[in-house]
Amino acid sequence: MPESAASKLIRNGQLEDNPWRLYQPDPAAGCALPPDTPGWMIELSSWKELLHAQPGRKCPVGIVMPSDGDCSDLMLDAEALHARKDVAFIAIQFLQYGDGRGYSLAWMLRQEYGWSGELRAVGDVLIDTVHYLARCGFTSFVMKPGHDPALALESLRAFSGHYQPGYANSVA
C-alpha cells in the first residue's frame, strides 16, 4: 500500500473520496500509534498497541490484515470489536490479486467470526476481481493504480445471478 492512497474508493456501491492512508509506526521515535486524527489505517502490530492504549480515542481507525492472517489476530471477539467505537473497518491487504487466501479469510470474518461492519479490499485489487470479492463479503474497495474505480463499480454488477447460495453479492 503506497503512502499516497488511491484518491477514490468504492464503498456501499458508490464512489467516494478516499481519505484513508496507512500509518507507518516509528518505534525509534516511540510512535506506535497514529495521532487521534481522521483517516488512519493501522496494521495488526499497531492494533495490538491500540487495544491497550488511547482508551478515549475519538477518530476510528481501519485495521489492515494480511491475506494470510487469521480471525484470531484481532484478539477480541466480534461483539467486543463491534462495541468499540474506534474501529471504522477491517481491511484485507492483497499483495497479489491471485492470492486466494484473502477470499477465504473474508468469508471466515463474515460467517464464522461474525464481523458485520465494513470489510475493505486494499492492495492488488482489480476491476476484474471486485465481483468475487463482494461475494465473499467485502463492502469497500480501493483499486490498484491503473484500475479505474468507475469501471470497477460497473463490474460489481457484471453477473446478475450466481450458483453458490452461500455467497450473496454484498454490494450489488
Binding site: 491471485g98 486466494g100 477470499y103 450466481h162 450458483y163 453458490q164 455467497y167
Partner: peptide, 14 residues
C-alpha cells in the same frame, strides 16, 4: 459443475 463455476472463494487457489 454449477458449484465450481465462478466460485468466488476458490477462483484463486494455490
Amino acid at each position: 459443475r454449477q458449484w465450481s463455476v465462478l466460485h468466488p472463494e476458490f477462483a484463486f487457489l494455490p
